[in-house]
């Protein structure tokens, strides 16, 4: 039951990284990186120095926010909402097969690589870049926005869902397999129930996320409130711009409240 008593009764916490060379190497590397990165980045300090008075002017011009052109604001938001709803629906539906494909514990290697590739490609590009390309291809308007955000949703939801599937309790899968369940039965009975709350949570999160993203794809002409905001900024109409920002924040607050409520109900 007892081992030989250690001669010295001292104890130190085992270091987080066992190899001292690696430990100090990482530290030195970090400092070197910081010096290099800050040194190599071009900072225009003169221009930055003017920042404070400019900030004062911008915020001074922006307050109080002006809701005079609320009809423009309303139209923009309606379109953003439509883009977000359609893109979320399409994206969440399409993300399920890709997530299953991209889960290493369920899919065979070739399928896994394919699923992973689709997710990586759709995640690699920021929606704004995708939006520029879609605008160039299919023209200005909400169609480009829907296409952009659908791709965006597949990437984001697909990736997190795949990770969730990889972390499921494997015992349940074994139980269904032991009962003679095939691939589809296993998915429906052992995998989806475990990730469903997460998927609903992710969908709600993605709706949030798409609403927010739909505000920016408009900056490059893909429809929604973003175009309105960009115009306001472009015309130095900060009062209207801040009004739009305030409404965006309010909308996100509401949507976050709803999504939080739904997630609480499901968990």
């Amino acid at each position: 039951m007892t081992r030989p008593v250690p001669a010295t009764r001292t104890w130190r916490k085992p270091p987080f990284i066992a190899n001292p060379l690696l430990r100090y190497g990482l530290l030195v590397g970090l400092v070197a990186y910081l010096v290099w990165a800050f040194g190599s980045l071009p900072f225009n300090w003169e221009r930055i120095g003017e920042g404070l008075p400019r900030a004062g002017r911008i915020f001074g011009g922006g307050f109080p926010p002006s809701f005079e052109r609320y009809d423009l604001l309303l139209t923009g938001f309606k379109e953003s909402l439509q883009i977000a709803v359609l893109a979320t629906l399409l994206g969440v539906m399409l993300s399920v097969p890709f997530a299953v494909m991209a889960a290493r514990n369920i899919s065979p290697l070739p399928v896994y690589l394919l699923g992973r590739a689709v997710i990586i490609v759709s995640r690699s590009f920021h929606p704004v870049i995708v939006a520029i390309l879609f605008v160039a291809a299919v023209g200005f308007g909400p169609l480009a926005g829907v296409l952009t955000l659908t791709l965006y949703s597949i990437g984001f939801v697909g990736k997190l869902l795949a990770e969730e599937i990889e972390e499921i309790d494997w015992g349940q899968v074994e139980a269904i397999r032991a009962a003679g369940g095939g691939l589809l039965v296993t998915l429906v009975y052992a995998v989806f129930p475990q990730v469903l709350p997460r998927q609903v949570g992710l969908s709600m999160y993605q709706l949030d996320s798409n609403l927010r993203a739909s505000a920016v794809v408009g900056i490059v002409g893909a429809g929604g409130i973003g175009g309105t905001l960009m115009n306001a900024f472009g015309r130095y109409d900060y009062a209207f711009a801040f009004a739009i920002l305030l409404v965006i924040i309010a909308v996100i607050l509401v949507s976050e409240g709803v999504s939080g409520w739904v997630r609480k109900r499901i968990w």
Binding site: P42, F43, N44, R47, I48, E50, G51, R54, I58, F233
Partner: peptide, 9 residues
């Protein structure tokens, strides 16, 4: 960008 001008900051 409006406040600090174009650039990495």
């Amino acid at each position: 960008v409006a406040i600090f001008g174009p650039g990495v900051l």
